[in-house]
Design a protein around this nucleic acid. Structure first.
Length: 186
DNA sequence: CGCATTTGACCCGCGC
DNA sequence: GCGCGGGTCAAATGCG
């Protein structure tokens, strides 16, 4: 609706995610992460009532893909390859458009019953990448945005390709960067 | 002119 | 078996 929603490729090029140290969220002045939701295949309940470790520090270093033994892989007609991994964030932000360095293309919008705010559906526009993203506002606090990632990117973030690959698993959209390194590669 | 966004319709799954 | 809700697709429109 807002014509200013045309998200650029990477408004936060210096967005360095030291996710395990939570420094990433401290680096962002515009929004802060309130809740980190770890949703696995079939474990996902309702985001509205999904209470997690709502602590300021996200000590979630144990993010793993949990789709290795899923019985119902073909839940959708899409490729069930990477649809087993799901992560949700609740972020305090005025804007629903939180670019994580990936390029997302909106493909749908829905009004949810329990929420006065619409839910937006995004797909990763990178070729061959079937990662989906769901963005909705918290019905309790409209200042919070709930972002749910479905799937795993099969490519690096366009804005952090110059970083070394890390063996650690990070939530979709977040690219890990060694805290010992400078955010400016030059 | 090309690409991204928007919006409505359609399809699928689940619950009653 | 029917209804409801959620999710996805496709065509149209607008903007760059």
């Amino acid at each position: 609706m807002d014509s200013n929603n045309h998200h650029p490729q990477n408004p936060n090029p210096n967005l360095t995610c030291t996710y395990q140290n939570t420094e990433f969220f401290d680096t962002l002045p515009d929004f802060e992460l309130s809740d980190y939701l770890m949703l696995e295949d079939g474990t996902e309940g309702d985001l509205s009532s999904q209470n997690v470790t709502s602590s300021d520090n996200v000590t979630g270093g144990s993010v793993e893909s949990a789709g290795a033994t899923s019985t119902n892989s073909n839940m959708q007609r899409n490729k069930p390859d990477q649809a087993d991994f799901r992560v949700a964030f609740r972020t305090k932000s005025e804007l629903e458009i939180m670019d994580d360095g990936f390029k997302w293309r909106k493909y749908g919008k829905k009004m949810v019953k329990n929420t006065p705010y619409p839910r937006n559906y995004y797909k990763c526009s990178s070729g061959g990448c079937n990662v989906k993203k769901r963005v909705e506002r918290d019905r309790e606090d409209s200042s919070y945005v709930i972002t749910t990632y479905d799937g795993v990117h099969n490519h690096e973030s366009p804005c952090v390709v110059y970083y070394n690959h890390t063996p650690l698993m990070v939530p979709h959209g977040w690219t890990l960067q060694p805290s010992s390194s400078q955010s400016s590669p030059s």
